[in-house]
Design a protein around this nucleic acid. Structure first.
Lengths: 345, 345
DNA sequence: ATGAAAGCGCTAACAT
DNA sequence: ATGTTAGCGCTTTCAT
């Protein structure tokens, strides 16, 4: 009463048996090995086709110790910055024969830990990561290093770790935006920032503060608000700011999303943007150019960052470990001036 | 001159040797096997920790024939619809112990073929896919079936294939939008559609046509334009429409992106929206609620679709093949009325 | 409660 | 140009 094993997948042994050769020959024929005859190759490929043979990557990976997998861990895939970086990585990776395994943490620390463990256990050949907003302890990434898996951080990086990092010059970006706001005549420039243990938010705040100081502005701590940088937070905190006895005439937000929230609030209350309040964000999310008014923001060259990371990864993999020196690369971002800060007079 | 093998990864054999037990015992101890003593388990786990042991999923997968991988293929990950579906899949999948392997095709047919092959070869336990805009020949998906890998399509599906499909009722969505435009007083309703070999665009067009007929509208083929549904296409074709001798007073676009393009053009030329032209899209992309005017569109319940797909997948996997009957599920979408169609009088 | 042994499917060094 | 053989790291049946 046994059901015939119709479900069993074809292996190279099945092909070998049919052709009266050995598995090695089949294996070699499939990889176009130079000293397998043309006829054998054809026979093998035809038989493979006929039997619907599907090579088993798992077996091959186990044998060769190579998985050809590049793991990428990002907070979320629907942010333009991250999806562009991923697209940039993919282009280079596919070209070089790697698969890209995309993992999103949804900014959840536990999920980040799980993804990292899973990538190590799946023998990913390298891990590219941007930290969650919650990540303080990076011991899970230390394990990656210990396992001799190349690790590259970008954007939200673990500064304590001795690995390659690709960063946007957040300080310079923030400085440029702030200086631009000063130039168009803003006198009371507020700032939304994220948690200070994240490098990007810390650096953007520093850029903001330094630009103000450089231009002899007095720092008003009431104008600096830390929140989760969501649209909702932008709305609420913009309201808080506008209800101050001395409300600001500009807001520089560390995120386009909270900048958008600010705009939504200001429009609802019929403030003029710019005029009464100028608004600037950070990241050049697609929507910043679509809404009215367009939001002044910072372009981070995300796709090029992705290309660069992937190239760096391939370089690191193909360099002997002891000869590879981790490097920090800083990309200079660009100011995109749009209607939200065209003039504040 | 030999470099000591410091790079070699710890295996269960190393742990076994250290503890004077066998690999079987270590393997069992790690999986909390009932008849391994508490002490042995503790010793094994401690030693594993000490030697920085990382289980090799590849070896384990090869042995058990299970990869625990759910492959998801979508055109692009930065569309809200797809990223929400993915998030919905992830929630259920992780809960059930599966990893989700996200693949994006960028609407490129060759990439779709590669992803499919790669998922088969990596022994993914199931594939969930939404086709590229270019896909006509689905023989690569036939191979998935032949390899006995459960396959589920959603949104852009291969109708010819006998597998489970989850669809939004595009017809009903389009019908609702069109009827809504009629109700607010539009007399000349134009339509942007995508390629007719894609089910969703065909169904949306049918819904549009049927609603018009139902209300005794004469169909004007000049008002129906097929394009790639991008922002750019929306701009250009809106211009074409407005330059007709008898321009439309409403546009229903099969995509939010081309609806946005239409709005950008209309705003630039100072048409009143609505008033002169009402605009509606499809998909409820986030930006539709953010721009001014908000765009009337169709919400597809994307996250729930993801949850549902993942559950269906798990059901299919855990059902004997001969007992599983593929089913088609149709989700009813919802009309979201926003400022762009509030009234056209 | 633990050990011995076989094998998942593939590759590659070493034959011939 | 092809065959032989061993083994990647793990699981699991059968044995004790």
């Amino acid at each position: 009463m046994d059901i015939p094993e119709v479900n069993k997948k074809t292996t190279i042994h099945d092909i070998a048996k049919m052709l009266n050769v050995t598995a090695s020959t089949v294996s070699r024929a499939m990889k176009d090995h130079p000293r397998i005859s043309k006829e054998t190759k054809k026979a093998v490929n035809d038989m493979a086709e006929k039997l619907n043979y599907q090579p088993n990557f798992i077996a091959s990976n186990l044998r060769t110790g190579k998985s050809n997998i590049m793991g990428v861990i990002v907070p979320r895939i629907n942010r333009d910055f991250f999806s562009n970086v991923i697209a940039g990585i993919e282009d280079v990776a596919y070209e070089a024969g790697y698969s890209v395994l995309i993992c999103q943490t949804h900014d959840n620390y536990e999920r980040e830990k799980k993804h990292v463990a899973s990538l190590i256990n799946s023998r990913a050949e390298g891990i590219i990561a941007s930290l969650t907003i919650e990540t303080k302890d990076v011991s899970h990434f230390e394990k990656v290093k210990k396992s001799n898996i190349p690790l590259i951080f970008f954007d939200r990086v673990a500064e304590s770790m001795d690995v390659s990092k690709i960063l946007v010059d957040d300080y310079a970006g923030a400085y440029k935006v702030t200086e631009h706001l000063i130039k168009i005549g803003c006198k009371k420039i507020a700032h939304f920032c994220g948690p200070m243990f994240i490098n990007v938010y810390r650096d953007r705040k520093r850029g903001y503060l330094d630009a103000l100081e450089k231009h002899n502005f007095k720092i008003d701590t009431n104008y600096i608000i830390q929140n989760d940088l969501s649209i909702e937070a932008g709305k609420q905190d913009m309201e808080r700011l506008m209800l101050l006895p001395n409300p600001p005439d500009a807001i520089f937000s560390s995120s386009d999303y909270s900048a958008l929230g600010a705009i939504l609030y200001l429009k609802e209350k019929n403030y003029k943007i710019p005029g009464q309040v100028a608004v600037a964000g950070f990241s050049n999310e697609k929507f910043t150019s679509l809404i009215d008014p367009g939001i002044t923001t910072i372009e981070q060259h995300s796709k090029q960052i992705g290309n660069y990371i992937a190239k760096l990864f391939i370089e690191e993999i193909s360099t002997k470990k002891e000869n590879f020196i981790p490097r920090k690369t800083i990309i200079t971002p660009e100011l995109c001036i749009r209607a939200s800060t065209l003039d504040n007079l």
